[in-house]
Computed example of a mutant assay.
Amino acid sequence: MMKNALITGSTKGMGRAISISFANEGLNVAICSRNEQELLKFKDELHIINPNIKVFAQVADGSNKLQLLKFAADAQQELGFIDVVVNNLGMFSPSSILDDADDALQHQINTNLMPTYELYRYFGKTMIAARKGYFFNICSVAALNPIPQAGTYSVTKYALLGLTKVMRLEMQDHGVKVTAIIPGSTLTDSWKDAVVDKDTMVLPEDIASAIINVYKMSAGANVDEMIIKPAPGQL
């Protein structure tokens, strides 16, 4: 029986690379995006990459709880049991806390923390009942060493790493694995306006490769946390 992976923030950067990697592994994938045109184009690309898989694509704003949970429910109805949840959705805001807009904290909580919390609550009990499943949460090195130029971002990523640790403790007796992927400077849309050398950065494909290799480990092995930084150091 084919397995199913659900990935948030699916059409760009790390989410795109992760979705492609799971498609190459022969898993059906559930993807979402706010942009319908990008989503449908990527759905077609995934079918070309692997014509034998199902691709469930739904327009959804993952920072909106109702849209997020509808995507989760519809994906499960369409594909069946969701074996892998990759919580990739996130945003980076270069601002100190004192310079934040009034809604900055809530907006970043809704994007960087809430989706993981809600998808854990949605899929967690089903995975416990099946005694299988995997959560990958894309955190950040800002969860280990805060970035003063991105204060609220650092706070929400600290919270996400803390949530991941709680998830792992709650799941470890039930056959469900939980891994925090902790990237350093990664060449995603967050850097689209910067002039950078890609050879000095982590690439989205590196994150995808790491997840696939962790996913393929034996049943008795769990990688609690994986830190992936640029070889020359953080930018």
Rank of each mutant, 00 (worst) to 15 (best):
M2W: 09
T8A: 06
S10C: 09
S10I: 00
T11Y: 06
R16E: 07
G26Q: 04
R34F: 06
K41L: 11
E45I: 04
L46A: 10
H47E: 09
I48S: 09
I48Y: 08
I49G: 07
Q58C: 14
Q58S: 13
S63A: 13
S63Q: 08
Q67P: 14
L69P: 08
A73W: 00
A75P: 02
A75Q: 03
L79G: 05
G80A: 08
P94F: 07
D99Q: 15
A101T: 14
L105C: 07
N112Y: 04
E118D: 11
R121K: 14
Y122H: 14
K125M: 08
T126K: 15
A129R: 08
A130F: 02
F135D: 03
I138F: 04
V141Q: 07
A142G: 06
A142D: 00
T156N: 00
Y158L: 05
A159L: 01
L161N: 05
G162K: 00
L163Y: 01
V178W: 00
T179D: 01
S185M: 08
S185H: 14
T186R: 03
T186V: 14
K192L: 04
D193I: 02
V196Y: 09
D206M: 12
A208Y: 01
I211P: 06
I212M: 10
V214Q: 05
V214R: 09
Y215V: 05
S218K: 15
N222C: 13
K229E: 04
P230S: 10
A231G: 05
A231N: 12
G233P: 12
